[in-house]
Amino acid sequence: MSRDASQPVTGVAGVPSRRHGHRAVAAVLAGPALVLIVLFLIGPLACVALLSLTDYQLGAATLNYVGGKNYAEMFSDRVFQKSLTNTLLYVAITVPGSVLLGLGAALLIEADRGLRTFYRAIYFLPVMATLIAMSIVWEFMLHPQFGIVNQLVKALGLSRIDWLQNQSVVLFTLCGIGIWQSLGFNMVLFMAGLTSIPKDLYEAAAVDGANSAIDRFRLVTWPMLGPVTLFVVVITAIRSFQVFDTVQVLTKGGPNKASEVLLYTMYSEGFEFFRSGYASAVTVVFLVFVLALSALKVFVLDKRVHYA
């Protein structure tokens, strides 16, 4: 047996080095994912930023650098202004509506045992159902003449409302559908937050003399649920910024741009008029909002929300 053992292992001739851990294996296992990340996420993201500085139109032979021209055009464009304010308004209405109803539903359902599973299933149903199909059902129910909603409105002695064709109503109608669709999702997030509250906190509160449901809520539930609520608000906002399906199929942004939203503007400029450069600039604006919210979630909230 050789006593000359004071060599580093990697120095042994003909011995494959295993010193760098699992480098080759890792390349095989993670390589495809890395390639696809570059191809479908990082690459396109960089391209959007670059395209927004050009006059590229799909199918055109050339493209020119135009600097901030797209952005200048965009911010002076009435359609874009309308689109941006509509989107912000949509978010500002949908988020509180959906979060508060979701929270209320979660608290009420968890407050007692009766029909708990039934309610949870019903409230969650719209989250599962194809939004496009349900949008069409809503359109049918909101039909100005024979829609069930207007028939009920008329039965109550009120005058009919043209839910999807009236400029001053249409955005609120879309908000309503948005809330209807998303409150069940928020509800299950709140339920998860509720179940992660330690039971002995309620018992301790009871021992301390918190006897009414309101006391328990103020002393235990709300402080424990507060961070979850912030988290739910942010992800609902992110999802609301992405409103598209209902607009595309029900209103096409109309009437008179009253329901024009950012993603619909991006879609029509990019995929109907093929003005890729301009649509990229719209995308960048959309991205700024979503990334700001995501960053808020990742860097601030994820540290404070603890799910057991």
Partner: peptide
């Protein structure tokens, strides 16, 4: 685990690789 220095032998045969 891989050692930085030295050798492991089993039954007289170096098994580091």
């Amino acid at each position: 685990e891989t050692q930085d220095w030295g050798t492991v032998s089993i039954d007289g045969q170096v098994v580091d690789h």
